[in-house]
Design a protein around this nucleic acid. Structure first.
Lengths: 407, 407
DNA sequence: GAGTATATGTTCGTTGTTTAGACAAAATCA
DNA sequence: TGATTTTGTCTAAACAACGAACATATACTC
């Protein structure tokens, strides 16, 4: 039950019905391919004639293509199968992180082509833009046979002004109000989309075809790394808020008297569960504080810590278990606030999931208000799936499939 | 950019464009009445012919009516003004609270008719249903000349299963899984809508005509009384989540080591800012704990406390100031999570707003992540506006104006 | 192998809706 | 009194869903 905004609405024009049904058809083909015109008509509950017209329109625009004639199910004429046309177009996804920047190339469905490459992130954004432009151009040249590029998606660990294409604040990169989109667009020559990494991860899961049935348009992505990034999907739409800064559950407190957080406040969830927090707990001091560090502490990662815990280091296990408990307590707050059908968790800590899952779940149940909330599905997204890169790709791929704005 | 759910979508039928434009027209008349067909056509950017057809449809259905011929602005034929037809229909709003239950009767626009009445809440829900049915019937008989009743809206301080019309859990009433809707419908004979009070308050503000311009579909309602109720509006739609339990920011922690909350957990925001928490702070002990209470503590209200603070009682002022600070800290979490254009605050504590606003604002700024967030408008809703009763009424009134479900 | 049944995909007339423009009615101004 | 302007209605054209018929292609049956 949405309210129509009397100052910003979309009147239905002559072509609106067609536009709506066209997008529905496109999405059904995406979700059920290979699929025939007749099956499409049955799914949409319209006459075959209508489905045929919609299909011919999508064919003309090159969004879908007719594959081989399929096998007949019983008797009768064999169907001609339809597919999303992922040939001749590609998407480049870029994940800018504090230490390294990752690049991936995919087809229009977001299927990975070739390997993920990476290079050291230069914190001077002008240099980074040049680095990126060179590498993206090289990648597109290497995969020339795949066809033209539909766009570049870039995710950054910080807040983004979508309209201006600017990174408002990225603490780990020490960026403030950096225009990344326009210089990149100018240097590469293809449209560039920029977004916060947590939001993009949530988008990627929303648009992943496998998630269709269960999440029903309500899901949450929590990315635990140096910081904690979150993206919230409500009613099938990413929650952006008034300034595209919604969804920052990483800085909701667990204890306002708790440890200092990178954001300047104290006791944020992030200050309890981020990789830095976990390592600090292990080393028994605050790694965020400036000061001398031994070699161990500066190169030692959470993966190393998990390895030690698995090898029987009780102190390592205790540090991870603490993080697990705080993770569950924070997830409970998100579940109480959003009531999602599923929570996705990504980040290095998930490699220890078999160790920590019971602790996470028990902490989660401890603070969820309802029995349903306590049973909320928590789904681990392993690093090999490259959730941030998939999010970057989704920035480019998703708009073509989105519902038209109406009413 | 909403995703189309390939398992639950709405195909555009022949009448879909009409249905969309009909609702837009209805909303524009609601927002701009009195308005002529020609002005409506200009606002919608359609031909006058289309607007005329839409209007005649709305006239036939009795949703609007033609008023007197208006004054001509310059030369030319005078316009005939259109209005939402609030005659001959009424709505009854019911606010069930732990101590008392309130009843109000309004027209279809939600404009109050007569005075608000109230009676003591009987915690036996069967008795309460009978009490309510009798009083609502009496009220409708008293205002017989207003016309037939479009429906009864009931708000309760607890979680509600909308599909089943059941109150899942209302702690202050000690209700669990109580079917309120069906017995009430049977006893009164008009459709009954039940909803959580925080959600309903948010709905009422969303549908209040004055808020159209500024909130842009992103707003939050926080109701501070015995507990803390919240309702979140995202993209012009109330955030319900998978089980209609979304929006419970009252139980997001300020400090997980903090005081015990009625929900069973510790350190919830509610345990810091609810009226009970404020009074406990003043009396120096936990009022939620069972045990002997002096007369003072059981009849003394937050309003009394505020009166003492205004009269110069330093201890009272300190208790209120603490609440103000915690209020601001919690609001910051909501703002970080939702990034609303405006936050509405209701409840007894708002009568002290002139005292506490600077403290609330400063605490809010302390924990908001962005400058924009820190500037988020906080709007006090005084008790005289009866926000919960308006919410109850909105449950009945809003569906007629909502955008049609499409795509 | 011919005929029948069945499924796919196209075509065509019907109905409903927006779009474009003309027209009558009503008011102001010269 | 006539020109001008605005409102509201009406008509034809374009467009899209609806409904049914038709051609095509395959499998099954006798």
């Amino acid at each position: 039950m949405r309210k129509i905004n009397p100052h910003d609405f979309k009147v239905a024009r002559r072509g609106t019905s067609r536009a709506i049904n066209r997008q529905i058809a496109l999405n059904l083909i995406r979700a059920h391919q290979p699929i025939s015109r007749a099956d499409l008509a049955r799914l949409m509950n319209v006459r075959r004639g209508v489905a045929s017209l919609l299909v011919s329109e999508l064919l003309e625009e090159g969004l879908i293509f007719e594959g081989a004639v399929g096998e007949a199910v019983g008797r009768g004429r064999r169907p001609t199968f339809l597919y999303i046309d992922t040939r001749q177009r590609c998407i480049v996804g870029v994940d800018v992180r504090a230490s390294r920047t990752y690049i991936m190339i995919t087809d229009l469905m977001g299927h990975q082509i070739g390997a993920v490459s990476s290079f050291q992130t230069n914190r001077d954004h002008d240099v980074l833009v040049q680095d990126l432009a060179r590498r993206v151009k090289q990648l597109l040249a290497d995969y020339k046979e795949i066809g033209s590029c539909a766009g570049i998606g870039v995710v950054v660990p910080g807040m983004v002004d979508l309209a201006a294409g600017r990174v408002l604040h990225a603490p780990t990169l020490a960026w403030r109000d950096v225009n990344l989109r326009d210089p990149l667009t100018a240097a590469i020559g293809f449209p560039v989309h920029i977004e916060n990494s947590g939001k993009a991860c949530a988008l990627a899961q929303l648009w992943a075809t496998r998630s269709d049935v269960l999440t029903a348009g309500h899901s949450v992505f929590v990315s635990v790394s140096d910081g904690v990034g979150t993206g919230i999907v409500v009613n099938g739409e990413l929650m952006r808020g008034r300034h595209n800064t919604a969804g920052e559950f990483g800085h909701v407190p667990l204890s306002i008297d708790g440890p200092r957080c990178s954001c300047g406040a104290t006791g944020c969830w992030e200050a309890y569960v981020s990789n830095i927090a976990t390592l600090s707990r292990y080393f028994g001091r605050d790694l965020a504080e400036p000061g001398p560090r031994d070699v161990d502490a500066s190169t030692f990662t959470v993966e190393d810590l998990i390895a030690r815990a698995r090898a029987g280091d009780a102190k390592a296990l205790a540090a991870i278990n603490s993080t697990a408990r705080y993770l569950g307590l924070g997830l409970a707050s998100i579940i109480n606030a959003v009531d999602p059908a599923r929570v996705y968790v990504g980040g290095e800590i998930t490699t220890a999931w078999s160790l920590i899952e019971p602790i996470v779940r028990s902490a989660l149940r401890e603070r969820t208000l309802t029995e349903f909330g306590g049973m909320t599905e928590v789904h681990v997204v392993p690093a090999e799936e490259h959730p941030r890169l998939r999010g970057a790709v989704a920035l480019v791929a998703a708009p073509a499939f989105a519902a038209p704005m109406v009413a």
